[in-house]
């Protein structure tokens, strides 16, 4: 089994493989493909498409949480765009999602390059670095919220010992609240990206690296001129996944700040939640969710385009 799995992973798609026997395989399995896809699409339709359509419909209605719907056309969208909060919320979500995802992928890349270069204890690191992604988000949020308290928090205490400014307000101030939020987002997210990128980095053909070493390329040159270009498609995939994941990230941020102080950390999912469940405005909430969906689709589309175009290089 082991040698089956560790087949070279980065390899060009080879059309020559489409021999006659493969067509035989394809023919034998074709009707099973259709049969097995039916329940898959059925579930996706029931649990994703249908509720999504329901939300889109809701976004054109007024609904306080109970009772009948009242069709209001595009009024929900108009009022969202007229009020300034949606724009703020989109800005905050993009800031959170882009900054956190960028750092996640950068750190994960560095860590995976480090581990792949025959580092001692790399098995241990592989296991441990994914821990933050596995722990319950409410536990993570509680710990870090206390950690970022200005008076008795761990973070300021450590900064103080290092001789750095230790009177930071962190979560208690609109201008600084996104630092801890993004930091914890990164802390949680690196493990997953690291594991994917590690696979890609290790998949880079050893002979390519050896050739580069013989050519006298420094480690930094190896990283930027050989490894990164080779694994670029994977990096874009990981970046896209992270952007989508963080754009959708409700659990952590809500548990840390509830969107405050004021509404300064109110990312779109929290905006949606607050509109619906605190104010009972399910129509505008659904409209905000639809707008979030459009952003997510755009991110996904760009991500797919980028990773494809890189692949053709």
């Amino acid at each position: 089994m082991a040698n089956l799995i560790s087949r070279p992973r980065v390899r060009p798609a080879s059309p020559s493989k489409l021999g006659s026997s493969k067509i035989g395989l394809a023919a034998a399995n074709k009707k099973w493909a259709i049969l097995s896809l039916l329940p898959v699409f059925g579930m996706l339709f029931l649990f994703l498409a249908l509720p999504a359509l329901n939300s889109i419909w809701l976004s054109f209605n007024k609904w306080p949480g109970i009772g009948p719907l009242e069709y209001v056309g595009t009024a929900n969208y108009v009022s969202l765009f007229q009020g300034g909060q949606l724009a703020d919320s989109i800005r905050i979500t993009l800031l959170y999602s882009i900054v956190a995802s960028f750092f996640i992928v950068a750190i994960a890349l560095l860590l995976s390059v480090a581990v792949s270069s025959n580092l001692k204890g790399s098995k241990f690191f592989r296991v441990v670095w994914f821990f933050p992604g596995v722990a319950p988000p409410s536990a993570v949020a509680i710990f870090w919220s206390l950690g970022f308290q200005p008076e008795f928090g761990v973070v300021n205490a450590i900064l103080g010992r290092l001789g750095l400014p230790s009177d930071n307000q962190w979560l208690a101030q609109s201008s600084t609240v996104m630092f801890p939020v993004i930091f914890v987002g990164i802390w949680v997210g690196v493990g997953f990206s690291f594991l994917i990128l590690l696979g890609a980095v290790e998949g880079v053909d050893v002979s390519v690296k050896e050739a580069a070493t013989i050519d006298g390329a420094s480690q930094r040159q190896q990283l930027f001129q050989i490894i990164i270009p080779l694994i670029a498609p994977v990096m874009f995939t990981v970046l896209t996944l992270q952007l989508i994941f963080n754009f959708n990230g409700f659990n952590l941020v809500y548990a840390m700040t509830e969107g405050g102080p004021g509404r300064s950390s109110e990312i779109l999912p929290i905006f949606t939640y607050v509109e619906a469940f605190r104010y009972g405005r399910f129509g505008p909430a659904s409209a905000a969710a639809v707008i979030a969906g459009i952003f997510l689709a755009a991110i996904g589309w760009v991500g797919i385009r980028l990773s494809r175009s890189r692949q053709l290089d």
Partner: peptide, 12 residues
């Protein structure tokens, strides 16, 4: 108010 109050809840 106490330092960092906007980041602290009632129980704190």
């Amino acid at each position: 108010h106490q330092d960092g109050y906007l980041g602290q809840d009632g129980p704190a």
